[in-house]
Amino acid sequence: MTTIGGFVFLLITVFGGYMIAGGKFGIILHSLPYEMLMIGGAAIGAFVMSNSMHDVKHTLAGFGKIVKGSRFHKSDYVDLLSLLYWFVRLAQTKGAMALEAHIEKPEESPAFQKFPKIGGDHHAVTLICDYLRMVGMNADDPHQIEDMIGRELKKIKEEEMHPSHAMQNLADALPALGIVAAVLGVIKTMAAIDQPPAVLGGMIGGALVGTFLGVLLAYGLMGPMATRLKGIVDEEGKYYEVIRAVLVAHLHGNAPQVAVETGRKVAPTHSMPSFQDLESVLQDLSIA
């Protein structure tokens, strides 16, 4: 919601300052539909040309993420750490084979069912199950596992970052598209060069609305949204880093409590549960 509020404040200050300075809205309102059609249509066309349909859908979903913010909060980190604690404790006390029933069919696992948000996160389930499965196959070198998870996390981040890059590319193109619309307005004006100065002034003003819109949409809307989405993706990436930290600490031979504490420290500061809060949850943890 801060993104919407910021954009509204931007519009108020820009147009408020224009009005206080004595600017007239008539020429802007008259030219706005045509200029927006040219600039917006060109932007959409360029965006579709430069992205696959999967990336287009992914970017559209990114707009919703910008409004909602990060999916993960303190309670989500508590749930993730609780689930990982239960898994590493089970592996330590009963052996890696005891995990098989949970990692082969996670949708039927009581552990994942207790935490439905984790169970519904494809990346989280894949990371947990795949690498616990590898441990059961004696691939228990912590350095190798850490490197493999790191490469997968890098791939996930690159894929999730594509909408941000697409938005930034669009932001970079919008000023030029605004110039295109403005040039067309100048061409229209030159074709009516025999008109009185008052008419020509209005036509030139209308043409400049295109430049104004292109710059405003680029630096006042698309650019900030691309930056905001990048920040959200970076923050959400910490959620999966917690999984890596706990599993690697477990493979290094640390006790479940120590492995989970290692993961807790990776969580973003504003979403990181305190040691006492997590400890009280782990003491009461019960999974059928």
Rank of each mutant, 00 (worst) to 15 (best):
Gly45Leu: 11
Ala255Met: 14
Leu90Asn: 09
Glu158Arg: 08
Lys57Trp: 14
Glu236Trp: 00
Lys157Cys: 02
Leu80Trp: 03
Ala43Asn: 01
Phe87Pro: 06
Ile193His: 10
Ile66Thr: 07
Leu37Pro: 09
Pro33Phe: 00
Gln92Leu: 06
Met53Asn: 10
Gly22Tyr: 04
Glu107Val: 06
Asn51Tyr: 03
Val180Ser: 09
Gly41His: 08
Phe275Cys: 06
Ile243Lys: 06
Val248Met: 08
Leu60Gly: 03
Lys265Phe: 12
Ile4Cys: 02
Gln144Ser: 12
Gly22Pro: 14
Val88Ile: 07
Ile243Phe: 01
Ile204Phe: 05
Ile128Ser: 07
Ser52Gln: 10
Gly178Pro: 05
Gly17Arg: 10
Gly5Ser: 08
Met49Ser: 08
Ile4Met: 13
Met49Asp: 05
Arg228Ala: 11
Glu100Asp: 09
Val186Leu: 14
Ile4Ser: 05
Gly231Lys: 00
Ile193Leu: 15
Gly26Trp: 01
Val48Thr: 11
Ile66His: 04
Ser82Gln: 09
Val258Trp: 01
Val67Asn: 08
His58Glu: 12
Leu213Gln: 01
Val125Phe: 01
His165Lys: 13
Glu236Phe: 00
Gly185Glu: 09
Thr211Gly: 10
Glu279Cys: 12
Asp79Ser: 14
Asn169Ile: 00
Val260Ala: 09
Gly210Glu: 05
Gln283Ile: 03
Asp234Pro: 02
Ile179Phe: 14
Met38Pro: 01
Lys238Glu: 05
Val215Asp: 02
Ile12Tyr: 00
Ile28Thr: 11
Glu35Arg: 15
Ser52Cys: 01
Ser82Met: 11
Gly16His: 03
Lys65Ala: 11
Gly23Gln: 06
Ser52Ala: 12
Val281Asp: 11
Gly45Thr: 12
Ala173Phe: 00
Lys154Ser: 13
Ser164Phe: 00
Ile66Val: 15
Ile243Val: 11
Lys154Arg: 10
Ile193Phe: 15
Gly26Ile: 01
Arg228Ile: 11
Arg133Ile: 13
Glu35Val: 08
Val258Ala: 15
Leu278Ser: 11
Lys94Phe: 10
Gly210Ile: 02
Ala21Cys: 08
His102Lys: 06
Gly136Ile: 12
Ala139Gly: 03
Lys105Ile: 09
Val78Ile: 15
Gly45Cys: 06
Ala226Gln: 10
Val186Arg: 05
Leu153Glu: 13
Val125Ala: 11
Ile27Arg: 10
Gly237Ala: 00
Glu241Thr: 03
Pro33Cys: 05
Ile187Asn: 04
Ala176Cys: 02
Ser271Asp: 13
